[in-house]
């Protein structure tokens, strides 16, 4: 709501651009020259095996991590070299759902969801409470405002964290495994919510997921990350037809020939 005026309506403008991004942690190379452009209103799904760097990629988009080399742009502004202070006005335009929820243990559910609102607006407590109730209702959890995060199940935490991520109605939402740990009907509620936010607020989003049915349902575009690079970038229809064995094994949820062979060799030895 802070940035409602500046929200781009057109479907072609680049909201985020990553140019030749490299990242390593000590010896471990995680991203090696990633180029990515996210267009307004588009939902991009990122898939890839565990440890391939999907979360690291998302954190570069919101400048929780800085690239060792390369550039990150938000709209036309380069953000990878900004100071934290210069980033503050941009922050409310991002929503980030952490893989492990990252709810504040020392705050109730209501305070968690209201936190970004209180931080970035001058609304009265009553107005904040109304926003909190509305956002919690969107994830199907209105009424639990006074509970503590420790009292919630993993799936409930995830949904509260999602309510917090969308509390300021950001124009860019990054979902790190939004449906992991949810039962199938609830997972589908989240899928519908992602679609709804896109439809009604023309939100640009990135969804990291291992859940192919969710990927196919919400994605306009699917990207697969493998050994620091994208080995697939295309529509959900085209990924079903892709014949790269690495992509196939992921899409079909089957073990690749090499992994299978490695397993057999171990068994025989």
């Amino acid at each position: 709501m802070v940035s409602a005026g500046s929200r781009a309506g057109s479907g072609n403008e680049a909201v985020v651009r990553l140019v030749d991004v490299h990242k390593r942690f000590d010896e471990l190379v995680v991203l090696s020259g990633v180029d990515l452009m996210l267009r307004a209103g588009e939902t991009t799904v990122v898939i890839g095996e565990s440890g391939s760097g999907k979360s690291v990629l998302l954190k570069h988009i919101v400048r929780l991590l800085r690239p060792d080399r390369g550039e990150v742009y938000f709209h036309d502004q380069r953000i990878d070299n900004l100071t934290e202070r210069a980033l503050v006005p941009i922050r409310p335009r991002f929503g980030f759902l952490f893989q492990l929820s990252a709810l504040f243990d020392s705050m109730t559910v209501g305070q968690n969801v209201g936190f970004p609102v209180a931080e970035h607006t001058r609304l009265s407590r009553k107005q904040v409470d109304e926003i909190v109730a509305r956002k919690l209702a969107m994830v199907g959890l209105d009424g639990i405002q006074s509970k503590w995060p420790a009292e919630l199940s993993g799936g409930q935490k995830k949904r509260v964290a999602l309510a917090r991520a969308i509390a300021l109605e950001p124009e860019l939402i990054l979902y790190d495994e939004p449906t992991t740990g949810l039962d199938p009907p609830r997972a589908d509620v989240i899928n519908e919510l992602i679609l709804k936010l896109k439809r009604e607020l023309s939100v640009t989003s990135v969804v990291v997921t291992h859940d192919m049915s969710s990927a196919l349902k919400v994605g306009d575009r699917i990207i697969m990350l493998y050994q620091g690079k994208f080995i697939f970038d295309g529509t959900p229809e085209s990924i079903m037809r892709c014949d790269n064995p690495l992509v196939r094994s992921f899409v079909e949820g089957r073990c690749s020939e090499e992994l299978l062979q490695a397993l057999h060799e171990k068994g025989e030895a």
Binding site: V62, L64, A102, L103, D105, P116, E119, H120
Partner: peptide, 16 residues
């Protein structure tokens, strides 16, 4: 614990 569970990153990403 806040760092390990990314609560500190969450503060940062919300501009606090």
């Amino acid at each position: 614990t806040m760092r390990v569970t990314e609560q500190i990153a969450a503060l940062q990403v919300m501009g606090a």
